[in-house]
Design a protein around this nucleic acid. Structure first.
Lengths: 204, 204, 204, 204
DNA sequence: CATGAATGAGACTTCATTCAT
DNA sequence: TATGAATGAAGTCTCATTCAT
């Protein structure tokens, strides 16, 4: 399947460094066939991103809609993203490296979609602030950036390490992310709360 | 000056999308001259990155060496990076977009240098944990990722917005970053402490 | 019908600029079917041309065979060609633009057929010269070129204008063509003779 | 020289059938160099056409401006075009086959320029009609089409024959063209007038 | 130092044609 | 008949890099 091959090739070589024929080779087809299904190399990446990102937007919305403490909502989002990485690290690498951080190319193209994710997380924070569960003196958008930035930084580190990440580590990081964002670093800060395991992720 | 022109062009068009002649045009010289000073297009970006990154590594080391509470140390680092952005947003954009997040190309080349920065921040955290000022149940490397990830996320957002950032906003964000990382989001967490203004940044 | 679709597409986009799939789309069939009826894209144009051109050769021969004054014979030929344009301007456009003037491609392939037309017209002139009705000091082949060149120039102009031509204008041009070729431009030359309407054309 | 090579290649193979590398090979340079001077293959043909066509427009205007009988003016125009063919048949072939008759591609692009030529010839006719030297019952534009169509038909025939044309034949044709257009075919029509040799042509 | 003509590998993309269904 | 997935040769164009001047 061409999309699958594209994910592997984009992840391995990067969008700009790979050729369309690399994708075709990886898929075991003639490269003309790639153009039978996609109008251009860029369209392949667009398709990959949009398909998966929309699932994530839904996951964020679902997390927000749940009747759970904010810690749990954020945990659900982190869980979703990290599980997505666990199930298809190559796709997540492509999305992060080639899209969400590519300010001059695809990032600009998909800026609206990317901001939707930030906005969804910010909404979770805002609601928690209104309920008095999160302190009100932090800008909700800023908090969303902290949360998302941390998760993407973790993924970026794994991406650079290029080594498989164990389920155990994934679970530990989920807890750490939530605790970090909610409780902060300082000794006087709140202690971590027990967590519920997440049940869905980006690529089930 | 060719390096300055390269910064502007890389920032505006991206490394892969610009041509060597674009840099030469921006610098007002013939493109052959670029090869008088640099062996290749890649070498220009390498030079840009290495020159500036080393200054940052020094700034992190300096912050760690100071006898100040960890909050202040982290604030100094955040301050340095954010002031660097304020003084040369184009260079910071290039470094972030084209190097530190470019897992398949320059990011891999400069992985060692990039990790040094994480390590420096982690050292600050570790020391604070040993002193009992930061809780010990958080992995110091993880905390460093949270801190650095947040700062880079803020910069990435500004980069995408492509709008000038006011000194006031920069200062506000410095405080928010430290408070976010140290105090966390929850209502029971510690209140923000007063801050000291930073005195140096990446591009003085 | 595929030939009809091909005419429209060749006329609209040109032979080299259209794709076989454009023809299939226009015909409302899958493009594989085109190859069921024609061995190649070129063969479609060959077929279009040959089918129609042979009708014209017959028309020229018929005109010559008639017992009529040379003016009438030439008028019959002009009439045939111009009426052909009126009834299917797209087909005539394709024949002229893609074949009779395409010296490097189809024009060369069908050179023999094209010359037959010139020869037929020249024969009409020659006979008129032998009868003393046309002056003898003009090369018959040259006269045929003048005649045919004028008609094709008129059609080319209409083709470029891409506007429908009224029956009235067609009739006027028929008279003008004959008068121009037979009487010339000069004031002392012979006056136009009344004309008989033509009864057949290339595409009845 | 690249333009010269392009003329030869376009003439030999046709615009659509040749590759840019054929032009480069013919010119004895790397094909990248072609793109150093021209932005595209099309631009080469545009340049070829426009450079030469403007010379012809000037020649037509000059002929019209001269104080000579209309026969002489038309003879000057025919002379110019036919001499142009004699001096660079390949260029004239390219202009006629690939531009002035290419209704779907370059002909459309340069329609304005092409019509200027028709207009210039029509102006000569119109003036002669006003002077009473040409009969007034012929549309001047139509007469221009007859004249130009005849000349292009002669050139097209030579182009298809692909054989060198002798100076003698060229001269004979000049006289025949003028006589044909001015005197017509019929026996009662005016006799040919003696002609003056032309002194310039498209490619001196 | 400085120029820009020249090179040519390499990328994307097109599309006529084949063929299994 | 009819479809459209699949092929791959071929073509245009880009651009990093070299080098004579």
């Amino acid at each position: 399947m061409i999309l699958g091959a594209a994910v592997r090739v984009f992840a391995r070589q990067g969008f700009h460094t790979c050729r369309v024929s690399d994708i075709a080779d990886e898929a075991g087809v003639a490269y003309g066939l790639v153009y039978h299904y996609f109008p251009s190399k860029e369209a392949i990446l667009d398709t990959l991103f949009l398909e998966r990102w929309d699932v994530m937007l839904t996951a964020i919305a679902d997390a927000d809609a749940a009747s759970a403490p904010p810690r749990e909502k954020l945990r659900a989002v982190a869980s979703f993203i990290l599980d997505s990485y666990r199930h298809d690290p190559e796709l997540m690498k492509v999305i992060i490296v080639e899209v969400t951080r590519a300010a001059n190319t695809f990032g600009r193209t998909h800026l609206g979609k990317i901001r939707e994710a930030y906005g969804g997380i910010a909404r979770i924070v805002k609601r928690a602030q209104e309920d008095g569960q999160f302190r009100g003196d932090v800008d909700a958008s800023f908090a969303a950036q902290a949360f998302y930035g941390l998760v993407e930084q973790v993924l970026t580190t794994w991406i650079f390490e290029d080594a498989p990440v164990s389920p155990t580590e994934i679970e530990r990081v989920k807890a750490e992310v939530v605790q970090m964002i909610c409780g902060g670093l300082e000794a006087s800060a709140s202690a971590p709360a027990p967590s519920t395991p997440a049940t869905s992720h980006l690529l089930e």
